[in-house]
Amino acid sequence: MLEGKVKWFNSEKGFGFIEVEGQDDVFVHFSAIQGEGFKTLEEGQAVSAEIVEGNRGPQAANVTKEA
Score class of each variant (00 low, 15 high):
4 G>E: 03
60 A>N: 03
33 I>C: 07
8 W>V: 01
38 F>V: 06
16 G>S: 00
10 N>M: 05
31 S>H: 07
8 W>F: 07
47 V>Y: 01
15 F>Y: 14
4 G>N: 01
17 F>C: 09
3 E>V: 15
43 E>A: 15
59 Q>E: 11
50 E>M: 14
45 Q>G: 06
29 H>K: 03
38 F>Q: 06
17 F>Y: 07
34 Q>C: 13
32 A>C: 08
58 P>H: 09
61 A>D: 06
23 Q>N: 09
29 H>E: 03
4 G>D: 03
10 N>Q: 04
2 L>Q: 09
40 T>R: 08
65 K>A: 10
46 A>S: 12
18 I>L: 10
21 E>A: 12
33 I>M: 03
45 Q>F: 05
37 G>Q: 05
35 G>W: 08
27 F>G: 00
42 E>G: 09
62 N>M: 10
56 R>D: 07
5 K>N: 08
13 K>C: 10
57 G>E: 02
59 Q>G: 01
18 I>D: 00
8 W>Q: 02
55 N>F: 15
36 E>T: 12
54 G>I: 03
9 F>V: 03
59 Q>Y: 15
16 G>P: 00
45 Q>K: 07
9 F>A: 01
3 E>I: 15
44 G>T: 04
15 F>H: 06
18 I>F: 02
33 I>E: 04
46 A>E: 09
56 R>S: 09
11 S>E: 09
14 G>W: 04
6 V>S: 00
37 G>Y: 05
56 R>N: 10
41 L>Q: 02
29 H>C: 08
57 G>Y: 05
63 V>D: 01
8 W>C: 09
12 E>I: 13
2 L>P: 02
52 V>T: 09
38 F>C: 10
11 S>P: 12
14 G>I: 01
2 L>F: 15
7 K>C: 09
57 G>H: 05
27 F>E: 01
31 S>T: 12
8 W>S: 00
54 G>T: 14
42 E>M: 13
39 K>W: 05
45 Q>P: 00
53 E>F: 15
8 W>N: 02
39 K>Q: 09
43 E>M: 14
21 E>Y: 12
57 G>T: 03
36 E>Y: 10
12 E>L: 13
28 V>H: 02
12 E>F: 12
27 F>W: 05
37 G>E: 05
47 V>S: 02
41 L>S: 01
58 P>D: 05
35 G>Q: 09
20 V>R: 08
6 V>M: 00
16 G>C: 05
9 F>S: 01
26 V>A: 04
34 Q>N: 13
21 E>W: 11
65 K>Q: 09
67 A>H: 13
26 V>Q: 01
20 V>I: 14
15 F>S: 00
58 P>F: 10
60 A>E: 03
62 N>I: 10
32 A>W: 05
18 I>S: 00
42 E>I: 14
44 G>A: 04
33 I>F: 04
6 V>P: 01
16 G>N: 01
60 A>Y: 02
31 S>A: 06
30 F>G: 04
48 S>E: 07
7 K>A: 05
52 V>I: 11
57 G>K: 05
35 G>E: 09
37 G>L: 04
25 D>K: 05
65 K>Y: 10
61 A>N: 09
9 F>Q: 01
38 F>L: 06
33 I>P: 01
41 L>G: 02
29 H>V: 03
32 A>E: 07
32 A>Q: 09
41 L>R: 00
17 F>G: 00
26 V>I: 14
20 V>D: 01
35 G>A: 09
65 K>L: 12
48 S>I: 13
5 K>L: 10
5 K>E: 05
47 V>G: 02
47 V>C: 04
30 F>E: 04
54 G>F: 07
18 I>K: 00
4 G>H: 02
49 A>M: 15
26 V>K: 03
11 S>A: 13
5 K>S: 08
16 G>E: 00
59 Q>A: 08
51 I>A: 03
36 E>C: 13
65 K>T: 11
53 E>L: 14
62 N>Q: 09
52 V>W: 09
32 A>V: 08
36 E>G: 10
46 A>N: 11
16 G>V: 02
34 Q>W: 10
61 A>P: 03
5 K>P: 04
21 E>D: 11
33 I>L: 07
23 Q>I: 11
38 F>N: 06
47 V>Q: 02
58 P>M: 10
40 T>N: 08
61 A>F: 10
62 N>C: 12
65 K>C: 09
29 H>S: 02
35 G>V: 08
6 V>R: 00
5 K>M: 09
24 D>Q: 13
50 E>Q: 14
66 E>T: 15
8 W>H: 02
11 S>L: 09
9 F>L: 00
64 T>N: 11
55 N>L: 14
19 E>P: 00
13 K>T: 07
27 F>P: 00
5 K>G: 04
61 A>T: 10
38 F>M: 06
66 E>H: 15
44 G>V: 02
21 E>I: 11
51 I>W: 07
18 I>P: 00
67 A>Q: 12
61 A>C: 12
17 F>S: 01
39 K>L: 10
3 E>D: 11
13 K>Y: 09
60 A>W: 02
54 G>D: 06
5 K>H: 11
65 K>R: 10
50 E>T: 14
33 I>D: 04
34 Q>P: 05
44 G>N: 06
36 E>D: 12
37 G>I: 05
64 T>G: 07
55 N>D: 12
21 E>V: 12
26 V>D: 01
7 K>S: 05
54 G>P: 02
58 P>Y: 10
9 F>G: 01
24 D>N: 13
2 L>I: 15
55 N>E: 13
1 M>I: 13
13 K>E: 05
21 E>P: 13
22 G>D: 07
58 P>L: 11
29 H>P: 02
34 Q>M: 13
49 A>T: 11
3 E>W: 15
24 D>S: 13
34 Q>V: 14
10 N>F: 06
11 S>I: 10
